[in-house]
Computed example of a mutant assay.
Amino acid sequence: MNKYNWNNAFPDTPESFKNKVSAALNSLPDKKENDKMGNGKIYKKGSIKKKIIVGLVATMVIGTTVFAAGKVSSIISSSSSTPTYTTIPTAGQVKKDLKFNPKLVNKFGNGYTFVNGVIVNNKGTDDKGNFAGKTKSLDFTYAKGNDELSLYMENGRLGERSKGETAIANYNGIDLYYYSYTSKFVPADYKMTEQDKKDKLSGKYVFSYGSDSDKEKISQVQYLNWMQGGISYSFLGSDSNVSKDELVKMAQQVINTK
């Protein structure tokens, strides 16, 4: 099983969070392995890694989540490899499955259309590794041609936001926060050059080790986050053709959905 340096995928977060996330994610089975964790749920690292770990990037990178049990320093997010929904679910279905009612959009004005959705299980721990709460959330995939975006929806509130996240708009009294960075994925045994060290120090690249091939890959990661009615919404794209302005308009469409 390949080990991934997940620490570098989460800039601007405490070391305790990075260490726990790295250990947790590297303990998950690889893409072709199924691990019955005693509760009938299939945990799949491959699907999580492909989406840049939606639950973590969309929530933990921009701050800490607060559960009733206390402050969470790390979260393990997991989901089945099989989509929960292959057509847009009804509000009743989501309410029954997750006990909350997020805004549901089948197709956006710019052409991104619902492909599938999966229920994500999130387990939080504190700085000492103690259980600190759990939630369920939705991860919807939208496509426009070959381009894909994720919309992550969780029933909860966020703590402090990171220095890298910027409020870029306010719509109907709701602040929209945007964050982007360039990731450089490299093989697990990659040795940094002097230029790499300069690029890391300057913030040009966020380095992540353990890519699926022997080749280096540079990806542009961006997301837009907001809170409405106690529910957190996050668009996440990796090498997506969508622009920041388009993400804002898509967020506005979600906000306006009845």
Rank of each mutant, 00 (worst) to 15 (best):
L149D: 02
T182L: 12
S78M: 11
V21R: 04
N170K: 15
V61E: 14
L104G: 02
A167T: 04
A251G: 15
N7D: 12
K163P: 08
N121G: 10
A69Q: 03
K134W: 09
T86W: 07
N225R: 11
F185K: 10
T257R: 08
E160M: 10
V105T: 14
I168V: 15
S78H: 05
D212C: 06
D245F: 03
E194K: 13
P89K: 02
D199M: 13
Y181Q: 08
G230D: 04
A23T: 05
S202K: 14
F131Y: 15
L149Y: 05
V94P: 04
A58E: 08
Y209R: 13
A132H: 00
D175S: 15
V57R: 04
K249P: 04
K107H: 02
K198P: 14
T59E: 01
K136R: 07
N170M: 14
S183T: 14
K258G: 08
T87A: 08
I53D: 02
A23G: 01
Y179G: 10
S47H: 02
K123S: 10
P11E: 08
I52F: 03
P14Q: 00
T141G: 01
V72L: 03
I231P: 11
S162V: 02
Y171R: 01
Y43W: 10
L201N: 14
N122E: 12
S211P: 07
I168P: 15
A9F: 13
G156L: 02
M1E: 10
T182A: 06
Q228D: 10
R161S: 11
F114D: 03
N225M: 08
G210Y: 02
N116L: 04
L98S: 03
I218E: 05
G145D: 01
I42T: 09
Y171V: 13
V186S: 12
G46F: 04
S77N: 12
E33S: 13
M37H: 01
A167S: 14
N19F: 03
D196E: 07
Y4P: 03
D189I: 03
T65L: 13
N256F: 00
K134E: 13
K217W: 07
K50L: 09
D199S: 10
D199R: 07
T87W: 02
S74D: 15
V21L: 09
D239H: 08
Y112V: 06
K99L: 04
F140R: 08
K215Y: 15
S238G: 05
L158Q: 13
K258H: 03
S80E: 07
T82R: 06
K71R: 12
M192E: 12
L224A: 09
D126W: 06
T193R: 05
M250K: 06
G164T: 07
D147Y: 04
N2Q: 12
W226R: 00
K198M: 11
G237F: 14
R161G: 10
V118E: 01
T82I: 11
D214W: 03
G92Y: 00
K44V: 05
S211D: 05
Y179P: 10
K18E: 10
Y112A: 08
K244V: 11
S27L: 12
K258V: 09
Y179S: 10
T84F: 05
Y179T: 08
K204S: 01
T257K: 13
V94Q: 00
